[in-house]
Structures are given as C-alpha cells and as structure tokens.
Design a protein around this nucleic acid. Structure first.
Lengths: 175, 175
DNA sequence: GCTATAGGTTCAGTCAACGAACTTTCAGTG
DNA sequence: CACTGAAAGTTCGTTGACTGAACCTATAGC
C-alpha cells in the first residue's frame, strides 16, 4: 500500500507508519516474525506469498530497521531475519487489528495469547488484567484457539500449533 | 493490500482484518472518517486520492459495515459516509499505528489527542492516565501538535486545525 | 442561458503482484 | 564421483490494480 509519493503529503503519523508497513503482505511478515519465524523458506511456506514479493518485503523491512538480517551459518551462507525492537513495537497495532478482525468477522478465537507468568489471557492492548501491567512481548505465550485447524498441511503451521512464547525462534520439523 | 484469494488461507484474525482494511488508502479513509470527514469531496481533497479509487474504497467500506451511507439532502440527491461502530472500533489499531509511526519515524507530534473531560493526553492504547479509563472515541479531543503545518493549502486540512472532538462532523469553510 | 458544485464514471498508461521456471551453493548419500 | 536435495533467491510473461485526466449528470444561483 505504502507509497511515498502520495502519503508524504499527509502530515500524519498513521500515514508515515503505513508507508513502512502498509503494503500488501508486509504486516503479515511482521506478524510471522513476532511468532518466531525467521527463515525465508518458513515465511514462504506459511504465507503462501510469491517468492519475489517475499524477497522484496524482507529487504524493505530490513532497510527500515523492522527486521535484522543475521548470518546463521557460513557454508553455504544462510541468513535469517530477526525482528528488532522497532518490529516488536508493532505488537500493539497487530494485536488491535487482530482483536478487531476477530470481534467483527471471526467466530471463535484462532490463537490465544496469555501472560506466561500467570496464565491470564491478555487484553485488547496487551495488558494482563491479573497483574495490572502491560506484558512484554517476550512474556506472551501463544496457544492455539478452538477455531484453528488442528491438522494443517504445511510444516510451519504445524509447528505453530505448539504453545510457544512470542519471539522464540520457531523450530520446524522436516516434513 | 487485502485480497481474499491468498489471505483466506491464513487462518488469522489479523489477515481477516487486513482483507477489509488492508488495501492502499483504506485505513486513511477510516482515519478521516473518525476525524469527522463525511463527504466525498472532503475525502478527495484531504487525501489527494484518485477519484475512482475513493469511490471504490467508500463502497467497499460501506459494504463491510465500516461506514454507513446516508442521504443528507434530497435535491440534488447527496450522500455522506458516516463511520459506524465497527469503524469506531478501529480507533485502537489506528492509534497504535500512529504512535508507532511517530515514535520511530516522526520527530514532533502532528496531532495531540486528549481526554475532553479532563484535558489529559491519552496514552498508547486510548486510555486516560488521570481517569484510569479507556476514553470513548467521542470523548477524544484532537488538537494540532507542534509538527503540523499551520497554514495548509486545502480547506479540509485548514478545518482540521481547529480543536475538535473525534466523530463530530467536520465543517469546511468554502475556499 | 451560464456557471459552479457534488459526486461520481470512463479510459489509456503505468506499475506492482502473481506463479512458474530457473540459478547458485553446498551437504549428504550411494 | 555423480546424484539428489535444501535454502535462498532471480528472472520473466501475464494479469490485475492504481493513476491522472477527461467526461458526465443533476441542480442551484445569478
């Protein structure tokens, strides 16, 4: 969606944000990065995105400082994309969008997010009602909800069925 | 951004939300609607959006129940687009996106949002720290911040310089 | 009759997305 | 040593969306 040419005239922080994360697929890439996905192929399989578009988005998000490209093996050279603090700061916006989507279009929750320390489901704004604090993203535990397909086709979706903390790197079993 | 064909396979409330509001311009239309803009021409002038795209977005948002089309005069027939409860529910997501944009890319605030009852600036999640409650959108007052151009070219931007409550219909002075 | 306003539609050109095929580099296996 | 397979892309032709300009309709005011 984003495009400097027009959004630049907007004088608006929302428009500024959308220039970075407003394009098609971009917010879903950030979502997956928060879920712990780091590798090109895992994004590819989980999103079902054209390869060229994924490469473009990963590069753009890296250039914007939302992701960081990191070498994880030397031979053959392989890089992974890790979400930065700037990307983590998008969690409240993604959480708000997800709540809105579920409340207005979804029936049952697909994924449930809980405070890992106490097990309480976190609220609309990422807060824990029991502890009275906003939960750091690293302390959010994601568990599958009743609406989620219990036997998805792709190995990345299967790996995401296991309860896990956000940001923790996802371990994908080979198919 | 949105497109059913691919996002439908996502099993994700965020993707579901992006199918509705993820396309280019769509979230900015909703933002303007929350600011009190209701008329085709006012959206057109303020956004600088191609006419055909605006017509498409207004129709799509109306079909999704985010806006409501309402006749405001009979002769000649003229309709305005008013944000619904479903659209108002997007405020936390827009607020979160705007905060992120300002904190990571903007210098000074462009618009400041305050609790109309007590004057306190509202927080990241739309809450009032003084009152300890989430402020209903209708009780949010918008005032220009230091970063905003004090003398914009178009009449809609000029009308938005005056402090006003969200949702209150915008009164545009003829140029 | 003339002009302006509001709210669109139509059209040609451009640009991005899509899906399939292809490339490179290496590790492991027989 | 050839073969297979994985990871991370690049290239390319087609399709679809966005863009800007022009055009259209109905009415009010002068």
């Amino acid at each position: 969606m984003a495009l400097g040419k027009d959004y630049a005239t907007q004088e608006c922080s929302i428009a500024r944000a959308l220039e970075v994360v407003g394009e098609r697929w971009t917010l879903l890439v950030v979502r997956d990065a928060l879920y712990g996905i780091r590798r090109y192929n895992d994004f590819l399989v989980h999103l079902g995105i054209p390869r060229a578009v994924l490469a473009n988005r990963l590069q753009a998000l890296t250039a914007e400082g939302v992701l960081e490209r990191r070498r994880y093996q030397e031979s053959p050279p392989r890089d992974e994309y890790v979400v930065t603090d700037r990307g983590i700061a998008l969690w409240p916006a993604l959480r708000a969008l997800g709540r809105w989507g579920r409340e207005h279009y979804g029936a049952e929750p697909l994924r449930i997010f809980r405070h890992a320390d106490c097990g309480t489901e976190i609220g609309s704004y990422g807060e824990c009602a029991a502890c009275g604090t906003v939960v750091p993203v690293a302390d959010v535990e994601m568990v599958p909800g009743p609406g989620l397909d219990p036997d998805p086709a792709d190995p990345v979706s299967r790996a995401l069925l296991k309860p896990k903390r956000l940001l923790q790197p996802l371990v994908v079993e080979p198919a």
